[in-house]
Amino acid sequence: MRYIRSAVLAVIAIFLITIALANRGPMTLRLMPEPLQALFGIDWEVTLPVFVILVIAVAVGVFLGFVWEWVREHKHRAAATTERRQRQELEKQVRATAPREKGGDDILALVEKS
């Protein structure tokens, strides 16, 4: 299994390196279009290789997907927490009411008690 995982990771690494080498050209990202830059006086821009922009875009997309799912599944986590607390409370009540005879049969102890 370890060899299969290593092989898959190697293939992914080769694929990513190939994409990076094929997309080395520079690309300029601007915060706003040029007419709006002149209007607002904001002329922020950065020039990066295309593969860096692709990696950043994928990382931001994955992060947003994780956050979206975490928020979406909040109700399930809250329900699980509530159920766990109820189960622990019920177990505590059962332990408090259970017969405390050592070495005896629990069912016989219940029958004798009634």
Rank of each mutant, 00 (worst) to 15 (best):
M1I: 06
M1V: 08
M1S: 14
Y3K: 14
R5N: 10
R5Q: 10
R5I: 09
S6R: 13
S6I: 01
A7N: 14
A7M: 12
V8I: 15
V8C: 10
V8K: 12
L9Y: 08
V11Y: 09
I12P: 01
I12G: 00
A13W: 07
A13Q: 13
A13N: 11
F15P: 00
L16I: 04
L16R: 12
I17L: 15
T18E: 02
T18L: 13
I19D: 07
I19A: 11
A20Q: 03
A20I: 00
A20R: 02
L21N: 12
L21V: 08
L21G: 11
A22V: 04
N23E: 10
N23V: 02
N23C: 08
R24K: 12
R24G: 14
G25N: 13
P26A: 01
T28Y: 02
T28K: 04
T28C: 01
L29H: 02
L29G: 00
P33R: 06
P33W: 04
E34A: 15
E34I: 13
E34K: 14
P35K: 08
L36D: 10
Q37W: 01
A38G: 08
A38K: 14
F40H: 11
G41R: 02
G41M: 01
D43F: 04
W44H: 09
W44L: 11
W44I: 04
W44V: 05
E45Y: 05
E45A: 12
T47A: 03
T47Y: 01
T47V: 00
L48A: 05
L48N: 04
L48T: 02
P49N: 03
P49W: 02
V50S: 03
V50M: 09
V50F: 07
V52S: 05
I53G: 00
L54I: 09
V55L: 15
I56S: 07
A57K: 05
V58M: 14
V60P: 02
V60Q: 06
V60S: 03
G61T: 06
G61D: 03
G65A: 06
G65I: 00
G65K: 04
F66H: 07
F66D: 03
V67R: 12
W68I: 02
W68Q: 09
W68Y: 15
E69H: 07
W70L: 08
V71T: 05
V71Q: 11
V71S: 05
V71E: 10
R72I: 00
R72M: 07
R72V: 02
E73T: 10
E73S: 13
H74S: 11
H74W: 12
K75R: 15
K75C: 01
K75A: 14
K75T: 06
H76F: 12
R77N: 04
R77S: 05
R77D: 04
R77C: 03
A79M: 11
A79Y: 06
A80M: 08
T82L: 09
E83D: 07
E83S: 07
R84L: 11
R85E: 12
Q86N: 06
R87L: 11
Q88Y: 07
E89V: 05
K92S: 15
Q93I: 06
V94L: 15
R95I: 01
A96G: 02
A96R: 13
A96T: 02
A98M: 14
A98Y: 05
A98P: 00
P99C: 04
E101G: 08
E101I: 04
K102I: 08
G103V: 01
G104F: 03
D105F: 01
D105W: 07
D105P: 02
D105L: 05
D106C: 09
L108S: 09
L108M: 10
L108V: 03
K113D: 12
S114V: 10
